[in-house]
Computed example of a mutant assay.
Amino acid sequence: MERPAWCTRLGVFDLETTGVDVAHDRIVTAHVGVLDGDGAIVRQWSWLADPQIDIPDGATAVHGISTAHARAHGRPASLVVGEVLDRLREVFAEQIPVVAYNAPYDFSLLKHEAMRHGLAPIMTPSPVIDPLVVDKRLDRFRRGKRTLDAVAAHYDVLLEAAHTASADAIAAGRVAQALGGRFADVLPSTCEELHTHQIGWARAQAESLTEYFVRIGRIDAADPIDGTWPIR
């Protein structure tokens, strides 16, 4: 069966950061690009920022950027954040869906960075495709991790230099295209319809995970997992 039309041109977006707190952590590297229907890179932009705070050793161990390197070679964070916002707005304005793996993390952190630097945030990114949400919906009973590297391997997508913003963004886009091919018979044909479906899918996935974590005593029922998508 023919892949959905949205597979023919996809934006891709990823951030590598100082940590996992979207409200307080900072961008270290970023990538925005556009892929054609074969997954080839049509346009791409990459950035290295000086986050203006120390990069924890744990974060450096993930993406390889130290505080010293970022301060020596990174551009001012306000300029980087502004340019990332501009490039994303350009892609959305062309009606190209943007792929982001675990989209609420990247878009929410970018929102807080924008506000931190007095820039207008992207408050309602759309249309967005999140391969994590789609994969968990369409192959929900598959065992194993759902990290990008694990999911990329499952769909035979090459991920070189994992945890660099460019490699992760491009791999996520190609995973989205692989999902489009594997599940063409059940996926919406338009990116707008898929975006709407993912809002409900993400909410249901968060509710299911909350129930599980409450059952095993990991979290309290009064503190459920936030399933808001694609930005919190």
Rank of each mutant, 00 (worst) to 15 (best):
R43K: 14
G39R: 11
Q205D: 11
H31V: 07
V42E: 15
R218G: 13
S208T: 13
P97Q: 00
I199E: 05
L194F: 01
P4A: 06
T164W: 00
D57W: 13
H69Q: 11
G58V: 13
G19R: 12
V151W: 04
D220A: 11
A150D: 15
V214T: 14
T190A: 09
F107M: 10
L48D: 00
A161F: 11
I129R: 08
S208G: 06
A61K: 11
L79T: 11
Y212G: 08
L209R: 15
L79P: 01
M123K: 14
D106N: 08
A176L: 02
T8I: 02
A204H: 10
W47S: 14
A150M: 12
S166T: 09
E113F: 04
I216K: 12
G227Q: 01
G11E: 03
D57C: 06
T190K: 10
A59D: 00
Y212M: 07
P224N: 10
V186N: 07
A221Y: 03
S208H: 13
Q205V: 12
W47F: 15
R215S: 15
D139H: 09
L148A: 05
D14W: 02
D86E: 15
A100L: 12
A72Y: 03
K136H: 07
V134R: 08
P97H: 03
P4K: 03
R71F: 02
L138A: 07
G58A: 15
